[in-house]
Design a protein around this nucleic acid. Sequence first.
DNA 1: TCAACAAATGACTGCGGGTCAGTTTAGAGA
DNA 2: TCTCTAAACTGACCCGCAGTCATTTGTTGA
Lengths: 222, 222
Amino acid sequence: MGISERKEREKEIRRESILDAAEKVFFEKGLVFTTMDEIAELTEVSKGTLYLYYKSKDDIYLGVICRGFDLLAKMLKDNSPPEQPTIQRLLNVGTAYYHFFQNHINYFRMFSYLDNPQSHSLASEDMLKESNKRSQLAWNIIIEVISKGINDGTFKKSIDPVQMAIILWSNATAIMKLKDRNDHFWLSIINVNYEEILQKSNSMLVTSMLTEEAKKYYQSKF
Amino acid sequence: MGISERKEREKEIRRESILDAAEKVFFEKGLVFTTMDEIAELTEVSKGTLYLYYKSKDDIYLGVICRGFDLLAKMLKDNSPPEQPTIQRLLNVGTAYYHFFQNHINYFRMFSYLDNPQSHSLASEDMLKESNKRSQLAWNIIIEVISKGINDGTFKKSIDPVQMAIILWSNATAIMKLKDRNDHFWLSIINVNYEEILQKSNSMLVTSMLTEEAKKYYQSKF
DNA sequence: TCAACAAATGACTGCGGGTCAGTTTAGAGA
DNA sequence: TCTCTAAACTGACCCGCAGTCATTTGTTGA
């Protein structure tokens, strides 16, 4: 009989509807200033019910973060079709990340929750693993592109794809975070063009990856 | 009469003794799990007194962060005496930062508080400005080194010192954060040698800065 | 010795995450 | 159609903690 399956589906729907509401409130107020009562009210459910579906406020937060990773992975994937030349793919991945940053800044900001392991004590291990799994999907896309580039002679053989992915990703993330901080808060060091910095640092790093042939071939790009 | 001066001094001492205590607790438990009662007890003072000296828990946290910046700036400065060749100075600044990361990891971790502007609403603007001022000291050291390198022909004229400082610093910070996260928590992607990554990315970036002459002269370094 | 002022105290308040005893609902069996 | 039971749901309540403030303690200068 399909009853237990239907129940399962309904449960899933409720889980999602909690995330729908939570997302709205988190986007507006951030983790600290969001209360469980607000989420409950917007979900049209009692506070107690929230705890039937998620172990803690932090777990709900991680639930929303998972959505962010899924969206990011999708954007990266859609913008780096395998038929393009490798270097174009890599540049497109970078561009897609920047678009994610611009158009889904709320998700982007939520990600920094994961940077601060002190706060994790409040989150369940399950949700941490889950969010980690989702983030892995995004990583794999870049790693795959770099690997392919090494095989097809675009990038130096000496490069380790995982290492390089970490370098490129970290660099981009760090600079976008700074940009965000300066866009919305006072501490701007004066006029710093972060988009330009991102461009420059990225091209420095990518250039160092290229083989001599690829460099000749693509030098018009830089 | 020197009485008001003495009082002033005593107040300063008390302010510092609060930070002494707070530092211990924060280092051990982190911001979230530290209570004002604990800090009060360790300072041997009542909770109310804490609020005579600092506006909030977050302000005390920022007070400790300021100490971290002072220490960092000192370490960077001590390790980059102006008489050294520029490139050596820049590399030494990098090494000093890494030493700071290794030996004063607690301060390093506290810095990420500033990355998350959402949490700032609880901190007073005064303390935020103060901590920002202290961090500026560290920035200035790198900017100065790079500027000098541009003048003495080590680095390309096309480089903007502030931009380059941001790039180098962001890169190093991001990778050290990842290393920290992996050293102490589960989510390690497997065997990733972060020290090597730091080395590589840094040398990629620094190499791209060098003039052709400097490259020839120092190529043995890389 | 005392008035006036400053410093320090700790019981108290308010808030919010999390709990759980009790209520409602929905499906199974008669 | 009418129980009966288990699962879903509820919201009053608990507890820990940041921050407050009326009161006490200490200091200074006359």
